[in-house]
Design a binder for these strands. Structure first.
Lengths: 138, 138
DNA sequence: TTCATATTTCAACAGTAATTGAAATATTGA
DNA sequence: TCAATATTTCAATTACTGTTGAAATATGAA
């Protein structure tokens, strides 16, 4: 997942209302849920809901399909999976991110334990690289 | 992790510059990195960097400590872990979210294969709570 | 066709976030 | 103390986001 794409998804979810909408869609499962039902469930004005759904759709987190006079929205699960993977791979310290208390999992550390699918990297602080010039922006 | 807290963290990371800053902090590891080094690394104006670091700090994703005349920032790993857990538990369809093809990680599936450092948990959608009336907002 | 339901679009407005340059503050070293 | 470096704060401006109410569009039912 590209940085920009990740930022877009994170930004879309970084709003309480949209996060709530997305959670409802996740709960609804692959069958999705009609816009009106979502609106009722969250007590949102239909136009406000539409506004946020557009955002989630643009971010690739939701899709819609028409069904009679209803528009059914559903969560795009691979997008969320991709986002979680992105965060795990790029934004976690190393070994144990995303694992938290292995409580139940007791990932019996057979030999090369802590493989962690996660960060193999670790460029470390170092740096103070004198590079420059390219004021990146969106 | 509460919804509001998650939304705040997601929102903080939902900006390309801040996402880049956070990634640099993650790479820097627990020792952190001086603000100036981050600024040079990403070619950001110092005041712009300060602005975004404040945001990340407010979201609980970064902390700072003074060291001589430098201010060292570092990523708050548990916050990211918590966020990934939140997404895995609340925003993933079910079973296989966050696992995806273990491709890269070559986590040699010794017995309890597919441990994948990632999602051990899995509360799944469930929940619901038929509540209503409360036009929530930020 | 006409009506009712479902959803989106539009426009105005309010509010918040981001960018910039300049100035302020703090710490170290001469 | 003075100068240099490091970082933050401030203020002005611009850009973007979210909210609201009203209107438009679309589908199905009477």
């Amino acid at each position: 997942m590209k940085n920009m794409q990740a930022a877009r998804a994170l930004s879309a979810l970084g709003h309480e209302t949209r996060l709530a909408i997305f959670r409802v869609l996740v709960q609804a499962g692959p069958d999705g849920m009609a816009a009106g039902d979502i609106a009722r469930r969250l007590d949102l004005a239909p136009n406000a809901l539409s506004f946020h759904l557009k955002d989630l759709t643009y971010a690739g987190l939701a899709v819609s399909r028409q069904s009679g006079r209803f528009v059914i929205y559903s969560a795009v699960f691979p997008a969320m999976t991709g986002l979680v993977d992105y965060l795990t791979e790029n934004c976690c310290g190393g070994a144990d991110c995303a694992v938290t208390p292995p409580t139940r999992g007791k990932l019996r550390s057979t030999g090369s334990q802590t493989v962690s699918a996660t960060s193999p990297r670790r460029k470390v602080a170092g740096s103070s690289s004198r590079n420059s010039k390219n004021r990146s922006k969106k």
